[in-house]
Design a protein around this nucleic acid. Structure first.
Lengths: 159, 159
DNA sequence: TCGATATGAATGAATG
DNA sequence: CATTCATTCATATCGA
């Protein structure tokens, strides 16, 4: 999606302050593409939300083994064992939830070092973590998002 | 969202046929809103699909009378089969032979995404397969090869 | 049913 | 950021 977003902006002027004047920034065809994308995601989300509801209706207990009631079941998917010694860092469920939320809020944008430091401090309250861990996580998360978006594209382009 | 879409269209002209001329149809601010919406839906969909997958994985034992046609779009998004057992991809004997041959032949050449795509298309003639499957296979095959040579090393060291 | 092994897949970390 | 590696998890298969 990033790629097409970029190409979409090619025709956009530098965004000068407009005094009530509207500049030509998108063709109608481009708008149609955008609307189709939004509609597609709307439908997909609605269907998945329905699934989710029936899911939690039947399986309230799943994902709660670690006893963190504040954790949305939707977010409690990457839970890992804490017991065994591990050589590489793995986010705790709480940390994962925080990270995922931040990722959504930031819309996948790159973080500055200051932001990384803040996030690291916040996460540190829920388990050991370094700034490198956070940095790597966001980097890998973006890659994951991108890869999955590509898969979406190839499978939903019929919509 | 419907509401905001409508309000967004208020400033759009009636969509007269344009002879190569671009009409002012959206401001940059509006585009930004749209982009954020799309990104948000992308990420939400990803998370919901993940939830859905884990749901299916744990639901293995329950009769899935929910397997109605309306779920088909979900399956198209990468989720596995609903009614039958969960399955992970496994190469057919023919596919495996092709992959092994390619692995021996191409020992050293870097496999670009183009190569992966070609190989996927070839394998697809002998059974369902995705590019990710092929990519993972080569990755795991390399690891396997490396581990074996390491074992060989340790055995010859004692001589 | 219970390990034991093989292997597809996910992901933290490293490299270019 | 794109690729790749190293490690780990999950599942399929098999034999006792």
């Amino acid at each position: 999606m990033d790629e097409r977003e970029r190409s979409r902006n090619n025709g956009v002027s530098g965004g000068g302050a407009n005094g009530g004047l509207v500049y030509p920034v998108m063709t109608e065809e481009q708008i149609q593409i955008l609307r189709h994308q939004i509609v597609a995601y709307t439908i997909i989300s609605e269907q998945l939300v329905q699934m989710y509801k029936s899911f939690i209706a039947q399986q309230d207990f799943i994902g709660m083994e670690l006893g963190n009631p504040s954790c949305d079941p939707l977010m409690a998917l990457g839970a890992r064992k804490i017991s065994s010694r591990r050589h590489r860092w793995a986010p705790t469920p709480v940390q994962l939830q925080i990270l995922e939320n931040l990722f959504i809020q930031g819309s996948g944008t790159t973080r500055t070092k200051e932001k990384i430091k803040e996030i690291t401090n916040e996460l540190a309250q829920h388990g050991p973590v370094t700034e490198s861990n956070v940095y790597n996580w966001f980097q890998n998360r973006r890659a994951k998002s991108k890869k999955r978006s590509a898969q979406f594209q190839s499978k939903t382009e019929s919509i």
